[in-house]
Design a protein around this nucleic acid. Structure first.
Lengths: 245, 245
DNA sequence: CGTCGTATTGAATGGGTTCAAGTAGCGTGG
DNA sequence: CCACGCTACTTGAACCCATTCAATACGACG
């Protein structure tokens, strides 16, 4: 149980089923474990990738920098996530991958992933499925930024992150870590920091959430979910891992 | 050359390489061809899918409807696209797929795709790759809606659609079909129709594009590309298919 | 104990929406 | 052949959500 690749197993089992032999094979993957300081880039746009990165413990994020210098955050990643699994078939990075806080990651050579996939077709399909869930999250993100107002948009992100962390055992009751600065939240939601602050205040004053010292507490899940229009279906979680809403 | 699955071959060869045997096998896929009227739903959110849809000729789009009734368009799809390939591993649809204009589509059973993938691992990887490019387009879309102003956002979409159509031979010189109403454009870009109209006027008056009778003419590719910040790298096109910008 | 990043709040500005009215294009039926 | 009705597009004007500028407060850390 103390294996460093356990977060990966837990994550994959959150979206699919694995046999004992498959789990065993995953745990035997050759990896290079590294600790990354906060606010560091791990892979950059235009890099050619020959390995992919697994979050063992910490928070990573993917982002693009535009011509005008502004930063758009594409996604956040927690324990068990494979944020650049797409590099397995898209060798050139079209965005950056960086750390939000000090994180422990494992690098896995593409060759090793391919060997594992060849031996265990089910693992290959589970990995493919994982990249498809990644895309499903993007679709929901487009929907939020394109059609939701600031407070709902932010509430929706909190619902998603809480649900994803819950599925891999990173929550306690109605509490989860949330080490995202208002600046980063702004860049993820397509808002200014000032407006993120005000929207946050709005959610707090109405008793929906609490957010302090990088810890998020969901005070009223029902209303938060209803008002943000959150429906976890798009996360395509394994039924057994779906905690009753 | 007159086979109805040729658009698929052309599309796949725009992003990867196929052997003769592989192309042969693809052309022998069992399909059900159907003509769909304009403005019809093909698959709906929450449907369980057992087949996927190939655009032989026409325009499809994917979209979500929000609690408040507004529509967010996620993507547009032209000849050769497999807009719901993700259903191969995510059986429950998390969005809708509909037709913009009268279109000819081919339905392919998941079983048939899986059989083909088992026999030709390269085809399976090319399909996986295609779903990853789909996700890369979503990432760019998030970036546009989140960080670009209306005219640039619209110009960027035109650049993308033109480039994608060019890669599969649907353009003539600087001209391509663009049967998207301003209403649909608005729902795709996260804008109101009024503002779409004004942004369009803006691009027209500055001599960047022409758009009438559902035909788009790129009048100044250089400036359109530069001002919208378009860089085709994220489309991950096969080098041979990349037309010099 | 100063300093720098992060959060908070006020006020003015602006990009985009909404409401509203009018126009152009097109297929249908009298 | 033209009136009719429909839909898509266009334009003006008031309004508002969100941005920008600016100032202050807070807290962690060397």
């Amino acid at each position: 149980m103390l294996h460093h690749l356990n977060p990966l197993i837990r994550k994959l089992e959150a979206v699919a089923s694995l046999s004992f032999a498959e789990k065993e094979a995953i745990l035997n993957l050759p990896t290079t474990v590294r600790v990354i300081k906060a606010q560091r880039d791990i892979v950059r746009e235009r890099d050619k990738a020959s390995q992919c990165c697994l979050v063992i413990d910490g928070w990573l994020y993917r982002y693009k920098i535009l011509e005008n210098g502004s930063r758009q955050i594409i996604s956040f990643h927690v324990n068990g996530d494979l944020p650049d699994l797409q590099s397995l078939h898209l060798k050139t990075m079209d965005h950056n991958l960086g750390s939000i806080v000090k994180s422990t990651v494992a690098f896995i050579q593409h060759e090793a992933v391919n060997a594992l996939s060849a031996e265990f077709p089910n693992i290959r399909d589970v990995l493919w499925r994982d990249t498809l869930v990644d895309a499903a999250i993007f679709r929901e993100c487009i929907t939020g930024i394109g059609s939701r107002q600031a407070p709902e948009r932010m509430a929706h992100l909190f619902c998603e992150l809480f649900t994803r962390m819950q599925a891999v055992g990173l929550t306690q009751k109605n509490i989860c870590p949330m080490p995202i600065s208002q600046q980063a939240l702004a860049d993820a939601l397509g808002l200014s920091t000032v407006h993120v602050n005000r929207s946050l205040m709005h959610l707090r004053r109405r008793g929906l959430i609490q957010l302090e010292k990088q810890v998020l507490t969901i005070l009223d899940w029902g209303r938060l979910k209803a008002e943000s229009g959150f429906d976890s279906q798009y996360l395509h979680l394994h039924p057994a891992r779906l905690v009753a809403a």
